[in-house]
């Protein structure tokens, strides 16, 4: 049952990214290109996604535990620290260069493997570099 739910959640997420146009790297870069060919579509993705996700979180907060799993694992650390800002800054530079973040890359890998697989290999190497340096 858990597997079926997880598949459906992944399908909703991937289908949403596809429908929203987030699988086209140029659409992301154009969103970021405020001084040029600006495409504000991404604002609408967040505007649609955040309020719906917030309803789910409010429902979860009213419950003792989730409906399927036994415990709630939501980050509770509340300090805005240097790694958060530095890491996010680096993430943003990579996002701007490639027009891709991890979700849309996974969503388009089977459609455009020649372009996306090199990106995903580099992504995993970046993640492994983090483990090497910081752990």
């Amino acid at each position: 049952m858990t597997q079926v739910i997880a598949l459906i959640l992944g399908a909703l997420f991937g289908g949403g990214l596809y429908l929203a146009g987030m699988t086209n790297p140029s659409k992301i870069v154009n969103f970021l290109d405020i001084a040029g060919t600006w495409d504000p579509s991404l604002i609408f993705v967040m505007g649609g996604g955040i309020p719906v996700a917030a309803i789910g979180f409010l429902i979860l907060k009213k419950r003792d535990k989730p409906m399927v799993f036994d415990d709630i694992q939501v980050p509770s650390y509340g300090v805005i620290d240097k790694p958060l800002i530095l890491g996010s800054a680096i993430f943003g530079i990579g996002w701007g260069i490639s027009g891709l973040c991890p979700g849309p890359a996974f969503a388009s890998v089977l459609m455009e493997p020649a372009v996306i697989i090199p990106y995903l290999i580099a992504l995993v190497l970046g993640s492994l570099a983090y483990e090497r340096i910081h752990r």
Binding site: F13, P75, P83, L84, I85, L86, G87, S88, A89, I90, F91, G92, I93, G94, W95, G96, I97, S98, G99, L100, C101, P102, G103, A105, V115, I116, P118, Y119, L120, I121, A122, L123, V124, L125, G126, S127, A129, Y130, E131, H134
Partner: peptide, 20 residues
Amino acid sequence: MIIGGFLVGYGSRVGSGCTS
């Protein structure tokens, strides 16, 4: 794609998350 992928992979781990 390769430079961006690496920076996204590294930065998102340091910063504990990405766009999602």
